[in-house]
Nucleic acid binder design. Structure first.
Lengths: 119, 119
DNA sequence: TCCGTATATATAGGTTACCAATACATAGGA
DNA sequence: TCCTATGTATTGGTAACCTATATATACGGA
C-alpha cells in the first residue's frame, strides 16, 4: 500500500503533468528532461528510461507534444516540444492538481499541525 | 493518461492516506467512512464499495486498523479503529504528501499563476 | 588502444491500485 | 408489495509505472 515500494510511487499519476510542466519551460530531449526533472525535484523524482520514453510516446500519440530528430550532433537526439493542445492539457491538469491538494490539505491539516516544521 | 477516465484517478495512490486520516478523526464503519470521505471532499472523492472494502481489509492485514463487528443494531456493521501502528503510518504518509506537494508546487507555480483564482 | 562510464533511445514483461460489475441481505417508506 | 438506502464482500479487468534488457555513440583514463 504505497510504502515506498517504487521510487516514484509518491508521484504516481502525476508524471505526465510533471513532464508537461518541464517542457513548458522549453523544448528538451528525453535524457535532458530526465535530468531536469531530477534536479527541480531535488532528487525526489528519478525517472527511469523505461518509464520516461513510453510516456513521451504516449504524449506524442495524443498530440500533446511534437518531436523531431536532431542528427547534427554525434548521438541522435529526439527533441520534444509542447503543442498548443499540450499547453491546454497542462493547465487542465494543473488545475486538477490544485483541487486535489486543497482537498487533501483540508483532510491532513490537523495531522500535519502536530508535526515539526519541515525546515 | 489520467484524463478523468475513472472518478478517483486524481487521488490514486492516496486513498489509503485519506482513509487513515478520516479514521484518525474517530472510529467508523465502512459505509459511514465512505460518506464522510465524500462529504469532506465535497463530492470529489466517491469511493465505491469495490474500492473501499479491499483497502480496509488490506489495512487490517497490515495491522494499521483493527475492527470488530457490531451486531446490536439490525444490520451488522464492522467498525474500524486506528491502531498505534496506523497512526504512525498516517504521520509518515502525511509527511510524504507534504514533500510531494512542495515539489509539485514548485513545478506548477508558474503555470498556476497565469490562471484565474479558484474562487 | 582498450575499457568503463555517461549519453541516448527503446521494448517486453510484471506488479499494483483502483474500478466496474455483481452478489447478498436488512430496514424503512410509498 | 416494491423500491431505495443501507451495509459488506468478491471477481475480473485496466492503466500507470517499474525492472530488466537491448542497442549504440562519445569521451576520458589507464
Amino acid at each position: 500500500m504505497l510504502v515506498a515500494k517504487d521510487a516514484n510511487d509518491l508521484f504516481r499519476g502525476n508524471l505526465d503533468l510533471m513532464i508537461l510542466s518541464v517542457l513548458a519551460d522549453g523544448s528538451k530531449y528525453g535524457y535532458l528532461l530526465q535530468q531536469r526533472l531530477s534536479d527541480v525535484s531535488r532528487g525526489m523524482v528519478s525517472l527511469q528510461a523505461g518509464t520516461l520514453y513510453p510516456i513521451l510516446h504516449k504524449l506524442e500519440g495524443e498530440k500533446l507534444v511534437r518531436c523531431r530528430w536532431e542528427e547534427t550532433t554525434g548521438r541522435p537526439r529526439k527533441w520534444y516540444e509542447l503543442t498548443a493542445k499540450g499547453r491546454s492539457r497542462l493547465t487542465e491538469r494543473a488545475t486538477q492538481w490544485r483541487d486535489v491538494t486543497s482537498c487533501l490539505e483540508e483532510l491532513l491539516s490537523p495531522i500535519l499541525k502536530t508535526l515539526p516544521d519541515p525546515a
